[in-house]
Amino acid sequence: MTLIARNSIEKLVPQREPILMVHELISQEEKKTVSRFHIAADNLFVENGQLQAPGLIENIAQTAAARAGYVSFSTNEPPKIGFIGAISKLIVHELPQVEEEIETTVEEISSFMNVSVIKGSSVRNGRVLAECEMKIFIQEDV
């Protein structure tokens, strides 16, 4: 099941092609979000037929952005811009191949004022590809 389809995902995230790394929002709960991403051969982060670690990290970050965008969209507020402040506990177990789909889960660990800490993981066919924690700063209205 898909909550937000590929043709509508740009309503939730500020990124656009060719850097868009989330294609669908699969589920959204209070603290947990799941996205899907199809890896194309012409993706900026593909090298030697595989999505490289920076692409997996960007996919996790954009899943967090889709989470925040969905919350804003649900309350009729404009989406806020977020920035990765820190990445920790990064483990890349394996790299996915071109034309594969990955599912990415982001869980909010904590949130205070304009800073959130999330735990993210990307999987393919039930196998964990990458996992990390991120500190994300949300830009306040100017």
Rank of each mutant, 00 (worst) to 15 (best):
T2N: 13
T2S: 14
T2H: 11
A5N: 15
A5R: 15
R6C: 14
N7R: 14
N7A: 12
S8C: 11
S8V: 06
E10L: 05
E10I: 05
E10T: 13
K11M: 07
K11R: 12
V13A: 02
P14E: 06
Q15H: 15
R16E: 09
R16S: 12
P18V: 08
P18T: 06
P18H: 12
M21G: 02
V22I: 09
E24D: 13
E24V: 04
L25V: 08
I26S: 02
E29Y: 01
E30V: 05
K32R: 15
T33N: 06
S35D: 03
I39Y: 06
I39E: 02
I39D: 02
A40N: 14
A40Y: 09
A41P: 01
A41S: 14
F45Q: 06
V46N: 03
E47C: 13
E47K: 15
N48R: 15
N48P: 05
G49L: 10
G49F: 08
Q50M: 14
L51N: 03
Q52W: 05
A53S: 15
P54I: 06
G55N: 05
G55E: 02
I57M: 14
E58P: 08
N59K: 04
N59D: 07
A61M: 04
A66P: 01
A66E: 01
A66L: 02
G69W: 00
G69P: 01
Y70G: 05
S74E: 12
S74Y: 09
E77I: 05
E77S: 11
P79D: 04
I81G: 00
I81H: 07
F83I: 07
F83W: 07
I84A: 00
I84M: 04
G85C: 10
A86E: 15
A86R: 13
A86M: 12
S88W: 00
S88M: 03
S88A: 06
K89E: 11
I91D: 11
I91K: 13
H93S: 11
E94T: 13
P96I: 06
P96W: 08
V98S: 09
V98P: 07
I102K: 00
E103T: 09
T104M: 04
T104I: 09
T105K: 10
V106A: 06
E108T: 11
S110L: 11
S110A: 10
S111Y: 05
S111M: 10
S111P: 01
F112V: 07
F112H: 09
M113H: 07
S116K: 09
S116R: 08
G120I: 03
R124M: 07
G126S: 07
R127H: 12
V128T: 14
L129R: 03
E131M: 05
C132F: 01
C132G: 00
C132A: 12
K135S: 14
Q139F: 09
Q139K: 15
